[in-house]
Design a protein around this nucleic acid. Structure first.
Length: 679
RNA sequence: GCGCCCGUAGCUCAGUCCGGAUAGAGCGUCAGCCUCCGGAGCUGAAGGUCCCGCGUUCGAAUCGCGGCGGGCGCACCA
């Protein structure tokens, strides 16, 4: 009985064997053993350039060194041959039949890992519809959570809601002063699809309506000085509580959160917990954090200077902030109110279980019918996923344990790097250097619009904004809720759905429920892949043609490769060939490069996932999936299965098709890309 | 001013962490491929001062230094 092989196992065995051989030959330990993949399969499966590093110390030619190693090394299980290639590479050839056999067997469960990772993502202000910049955040966070889970980590996904902030206050002010809103019931009616008191409504629901309300009020603030006081009045009312304005804010925020959750839900993005800023205030988390900070001496009251009357976090002594003109960060303003950073420090302490206080919790079921989305569009796994939120009072006693993380990963765009650094520093000065080290800022670049895309937006959705002359000259412009400039997620999904429905209609007769389901899978796959294929430090200059493309390096290309494999299995089933040869042992030989390339790519998935998470570069998963799909399509055209007469040849090809099917399914699962039935 | 990110084919991007084999892919262009598991596919061609300079090295797209161009930060906003 052969031991099950894995690529990681072989890799580490080869490294060990090389160290051992080098020790025997020269008594010199290898400091590090790099094993890369050679540019062509003919050169082998693993390549080590170690001989180049040793050449100087040993005063020998790299090829001679590699040759010595090749003849000395004891080949581990699964490795067939070691050979010198190129200018002195030591390359290893694996036992193809053995690895295929292992890959065909059931996958072992990932090892369970200690601790819990909290992933915080999405965090959209609940005051208007979400745009695709928000979706890049959510997609990255979601894939990170899925990949960590695949690797055996315990993961908790949190979506923080700033339900009492400036942005919500602005829309409340806009609704009250511009739309005749007087009561929370006015907002409730609009949330159910009705009009506002002034008759305003939007076919896509309240969140869309508020998109315009927010842009209008922002404009009004610029023109009308008096109007700017409305924000402060609303904020005070929210803070005081127990008044109609506060209730309007609460109903509004909750309705828009539902819309956001529905938008994310149709894209397969789910959460475990919605912590609410209002509950951080209610629970006086900041007072506790403030006490800790004061006691540590790192937060001091400024008696004079430009920060006179403020409590500031002293950062001037920290090396990380060296060279800054004014490194100290204000946590409590001279008027006694606290900054966002202060709240974030308290919240971060809670995530690690360091605050000595906890929220109350209650299950939360959003209204999935948000106006832009219907409930049946929500992915089932999202609808069935238990969702909790922090409770204003009471809560339920038997809730899961939240927080108490060993690692916290905050998915926030690169512009907030400085704030994230301050929060980390806050933990450090409080005497929690370990937790500071395990507070990870997963930063990424924003999604912007080309001026061309901005013009198309106006055409496609009949919106009225115009770019300023200086914006017109820029290579791209930032999306901005305040300017009302941005591609709303649900609008883009709608365009993608239209496109995928058209494509499907051209390929099959009659539109049924299954066709609609497939159209949705393709639209979601295209959108998610589009946002995931770029490196995280790459600014995405949004382009409609590119986002709506279904050919080449796209989500549908991946899905199509999977559907093709399924078509083969279905056809075999129909012809009664599925079982033929299934029980017989596979041949050890005859695994050509097409077959082998697919097997190797499939076997590399755990390593790819590990690397993606270590570097927070999730695009590598997308790229690997694309490479795998390419390899399969290549194989598909060259090596027919159903029509192959030779049962042994067919068995080999079928085995590899099965390995591919499972591997692609796994990768799509990590990327959150649904699997269509037919395409 | 200081800090971070980006600069690779006409366009959009991989490759840079950890230097190594002919610098890859998609789109676009051009030329092919359906009696065959459905062409959202496949095959091929053309297309490159890897932003510039200097340095380190047997070897640099990759490392270091200095520039240039673009973006983003450095609030009693979030």
């Amino acid at each position: 009985m052969n031991r099950a092989l894995s690529l990681e196992g072989i890799r580490s065995d080869v490294a060990t064997a090389m160290r051992e051989a080098a020790g025997r030959l020269w008594g010199a330990p290898l400091d590090r053993v790099v094993l890369e993949r050679p540019p062509a399969l003919a050169m082998g499966d693993l390549a080590s350039p170690v001989a180049f590093d040793l050449a100087k110390a040993l005063r020998k030619a790299p090829r001679a060194i590699a040759g010595d190693l090749a003849t000395t090394i004891t080949l581990p299980d699964g490795v067939r041959e070691a050979r010198v290639e190129g200018g002195g590479y030591l390359n290893f050839f694996l036992d193809r039949g053995r690895l295929v056999e292992s890959m065909l067997a059931e996958e072992p469960a990932p090892p369970e890992r200690a601790g819990k990772i909290v992933v915080e993502h999405t965090n959209i202000n609940p005051n208007k519809a979400a745009h695709i910049g928000h979706l890049r955040n959510a997609a990255l966070g979601d894939v990170l959570a899925r990949t960590l889970t695949f690797l055996g980590h315990r993961v908790e996904v949190q979506n923080y809601l700033d339900d009492t902030g400036v942005q919500v206050a602005d829309v409340v002010a806009g609704l009250q002063h511009g739309n005749g809103v007087r009561s929370a019931d006015d907002v409730r009616r609009a949330a159910k699809g009705g009009p506002l008191p002034d008759g305003a409504s939007h076919p896509r629901g309240l969140a869309y309506l508020c998109w315009d309300v927010y842009a209008d009020i922002a404009k009004l603030y610029e023109e009308n000085e008096e109007a700017r006081n409305w924000r402060t009045e609303v904020l005070h009312a929210i803070e005081a509580g127990d008044n109609e304005t506060a209730r309007i804010a609460e109903v509004l925020a909750e309705a828009i959160v539902s819309a956001h959750l529905a938008t994310m839900g149709r894209l397969g993005i789910a959460y475990d917990l919605l912590p609410r800023e209002s509950d951080i205030l209610r629970k006086h988390f900041w007072s506790r954090a403030f006490e800790l900070l004061k006691r540590s001496g790192a937060v001091v009251f400024e008696e004079e200077g430009k920060h006179s009357g403020c409590w500031v976090l002293r950062l001037s002594e920290s090396t990380e902030f060296a060279g800054m003109e004014e490194p100290d960060k204000i946590l409590v303003r001279s008027n006694g109110t606290i900054t966002y950073t202060a709240k974030d420090i308290a919240y971060q302490l809670w995530k690690f279980g360091l605050l000595g206080a906890d929220f109350d919790y209650e299950p939360f079921r959003p209204d999935w019918n948000s106006g832009a989305v219907r409930e049946e569009e929500i992915a089932r796994e999202v609808r069935e996923h238990p969702l909790w939120r922090t409770a204003h009072s009471g809560g339920v006693s038997n809730h899961p344990e939240f927080g108490r993380a060993t690692t916290v990963i905050n998915v926030i765009d690169v512009r907030q790097s400085y704030l994230q650094k301050v929060v980390r520093e806050g933990l450090r000065v409080l005497g929690f250097p370990d937790e500071a080290g395990k507070s990870v800022h997963f930063s990424y670049e924003m999604v912007a619009l080309t001026p061309q895309a901005a013009r198309e937006l106006a055409e496609k959705f009949e919106e009225e904004y115009r770019l300023s002359p200086e914006d017109e000259k820029k290579p791209f412009v930032e999306m901005s809720g305040r300017k009302g400039l941005g591609v709303k997620i649900d609008d883009l999904v709608e365009l993608l759905l239209e496109r995928s429905r058209r494509e499907i209609a051209a390929r099959r007769e009659g539109a049924d429920a299954a066709a609609e389901e497939d159209a949705r899978a393709i639209a979601v796959g295209a959108l998610r892949y589009f946002l995931l294929k770029f490196g995280r430090n790459k600014l995405i200059a949004f382009d409609f043609d590119e986002a709506l493309n279904f050919e080449g390096d796209t989500g549908p290309y991946l899905q199509y490769s999977l559907v093709r494999a399924d078509n083969i299995f279905r056809k075999l089933e129909e012809r009664g060939l599925a079982a033929a040869g299934a029980t017989e042992p596979l041949p050890r030989e005859g695994w050509d490069d097409d077959l082998w390339a697919l097997t190797l790519d499939a076997a590399a998935i755990p390593e790819v996932a590990e690397r993606a998470v270590d570097s927070l570069e999730l695009s590598t998963i997308a790229r690997h999936a694309f490479g795998l799909a390419q390899a399969f399509n290549h194989f598909y055209h060259r090596q027919p299965i159903v029509n192959e007469k030779d049962p042994v040849v067919r068995a080999r090809r079928l085995a590899v098709a099965k390995i591919f099917r499972r591997a692609m399914s796994r990768l799509l699962g990590l990327l959150g890309i649904p699997e269509p039935g037919r395409m």
